[in-house]
Amino acid sequence: MSSPLSGLGLTIPLIAAPMAGGPTTPALVTAAARAGGLGLLAGGYRTPQELAGHITAVRAQAVPFGVNLFAPNPVPVDAEAYRRYARSIQAEGDRYDLDLTGGDPVEDDDHWHDKIDLLLADPVALVGFTFGVPDPAVVAALRSAGTVVVQTVTSAEEARIAADAGADLLAVQASAAGGHSGTLTPERVPPPTPVADLVTEVRSAVSLPLIAAGGIATPADVAAVIRAGAMAAMVGTVLLRADESGTSAVHQAALADPDRDRTVVTRAFTGRPARALRNDFTDRYTGEAPAGYPALHHLTSPMRKAAAAAGDPERVNLWAGTGHRHATAEPADRILTRLAEAL
């Protein structure tokens, strides 16, 4: 079977994950391609104009690349639960003279239609979707424009939904992944199925080619998912300290801190399950945070930005997968080349 990635020049089966919020930069995407893999720009949280600028920057380097978007799958927050949570975390905002209790919930779609219009008007080789499955008409329009469509899934059931929507390729994300889970049902946290086992489960459900993601941090991990039937491995956390990443200084320091040896899955920062290094904020608020995305993301964003600027790791979303100990401060091409050594 011909691979949907066959025209993208991969010489190693590795993809640099799209890490929204800053870590993924045009330089990191370019480095992944020059190492023989592929990088995906993170369209999430960027305006269409910012995304267009990143696309232009990578195109100027004449390397293959893709773009990932957050597809709408809102989790509307209960208004009273939102107000109660805002009052609870106001003590954290007080540290930075922020009022977190004065506004209404923001329920936006991350400029969804404008970003789709951008990618149809100026197509890229590959577009991925996370959080939700787009309308089949959107998928069909992208494919007609010559774009390979990748859908993130976290179960065999989700894989069937994505296949029915017309996806070319599935990114099978295990719960060990850092940052947000791509689950289509964010009110439930996906079970801790090892990534190679999840690939096997999904392969039994659909015939689409698969990319494995989640907790992949060593050459042995990469080899295991390829043996399980994935055509490529997607890695993110191991690139958070790469020279080309845009990961904040406070986040990079936390990843290198030997005392931060545990990750937790929390809704405390965004109202959607995400894996992060444990800190004071996750300890205090994971148990009481309501489901509600993107409302909680917007609620805590000013606090997180202020904390990062102040070098305060206890109020920052320190996204990290279970393999975070393998994140190293060196060029991305060296990291990716090493990960392919056991193939």
Rank of each mutant, 00 (worst) to 15 (best):
Y285R: 04
A249W: 02
R241C: 12
A306Y: 03
P294C: 02
T247V: 05
L299W: 15
R284Y: 07
K305W: 08
S301Y: 11
F281S: 01
L255P: 04
F269W: 10
R241Q: 09
A295M: 05
P302G: 11
T263V: 09
P290E: 04
E288K: 05
H297K: 02
P258D: 05
R284V: 05
R260P: 11
N279H: 02
G246M: 13
H297N: 14
L299I: 13
F269D: 02
A289W: 07
P290K: 04
T247G: 00
R304K: 14
N279E: 00
T266Q: 00
R278N: 07
L299S: 14
S245A: 15
F281L: 11
R284M: 07
P258V: 05
L277P: 13
G287L: 09
F281W: 13
D243T: 15
Y285Q: 05
A291S: 14
S301G: 09
R267C: 10
T247E: 02
E288G: 06
R241Y: 01
T286D: 12
H297R: 06
R267F: 09
T282F: 10
V250G: 06
A254E: 12
E244Q: 09
L299Y: 15
F281E: 01
A253P: 12
Y293D: 05
T263A: 02
T270K: 02
R275C: 06
R262E: 15
L240N: 15
G292E: 11
L240I: 14
L299K: 14
R278S: 12
Y293C: 02
D283Y: 03
Q252I: 05
S248V: 04
Y293S: 00
Q252V: 07
K305R: 14
A274Q: 07
